[in-house]
């Protein structure tokens, strides 16, 4: 009797082990999948996201632009200045091209923000004309240096002013070339590094949304 039960017990144990393995794999894919990074993402992805600390800037209409303006939608953000002849307009054009690749459903939940770190030369009225040239829905943002630094340091954006050459009023501003993506809960979620490509930005954005939404 004892002898004849042995194989049944063994079979049961093996069956339980296999079931456990299958269940474990299924659960790890179902639950753990949320933090996986898509293999072919053209961006640096932050699986947990980095919450943005409070900051207070103004938009092109002089209205407050703070963390609350980031909530409830995805935000692409690029930092520069309007007198930037090459990198900034090229990047904004790329953002416009990426914008065109998004479907209407995505557009309703997405905003493109150009942040000028050069508040002296880029007051809201100047920014309004500038961003409107690229797209009427684009948002221009600027603000005081201490508030700007709260945002830029928080998301790892660098900028610095070069001294004007003797006898010149104009000056050059050096700045990071990254486009950052902030999720609807105001977490830094991804960083796109130059050179930028609208197809890659739009494609990666879709993959990130598929993962998180």
């Amino acid at each position: 009797m004892k002898k004849s039960n042995f194989p049944i017990q063994s079979l049961l144990l093996v069956a339980v082990a296999i079931l456990s393995l299958v269940l474990g794999l299924w659960l790890s894919q179902k639950l753990g999948g949320k933090t996986l990074v898509p293999a072919d993402l053209d961006a640096t992805f932050l699986p947990s996201g980095k919450p943005l600390a409070p900051f207070s800037l103004v938009d092109q209409d002089g209205k407050a632009f703070d963390v609350d303006r980031l909530k409830g939608r995805w935000t692409f953000m690029f930092f520069g200045y309007t007198n930037c002849p090459d990198v900034c307009p090229t990047t904004l054009q790329t953002m416009k091209d990426a914008w065109k690749l998004l479907d209407k459903k995505s557009l309703d939940k997405t905003q493109m923000v150009f942040v000028s770190v050069d508040a002296d030369r880029d007051p809201p009225a100047v920014l309004k004309k500038y961003v409107n040239y690229f797209h009427p829905d684009f948002i221009g943002v600027t603000g005081k240096p201490e508030q700007m630094d709260l945002l830029t340091r928080n998301i790892g954006i660098l900028y610095g002013f070069e001294d004007p050459q003797p006898g010149r009023k104009d000056y050059v501003v050096n700045h990071s070339g990254q486009i950052v993506l902030i999720d609807p809960a105001a977490n830094l979620r991804a960083v796109f590094s130059p050179p930028h490509d609208p197809q890659k930005i739009a494609g990666s954005f879709q993959k990130i949304r598929n993962l998180l939404e």
């Binding site: 002849p85 040239y133 104009d170």
Partner: peptide
Amino acid sequence: IAEAPPGVKVMA
């Protein structure tokens, strides 16, 4: 020469 937004004083 890249067309520039209005008000821009430096072009590329």
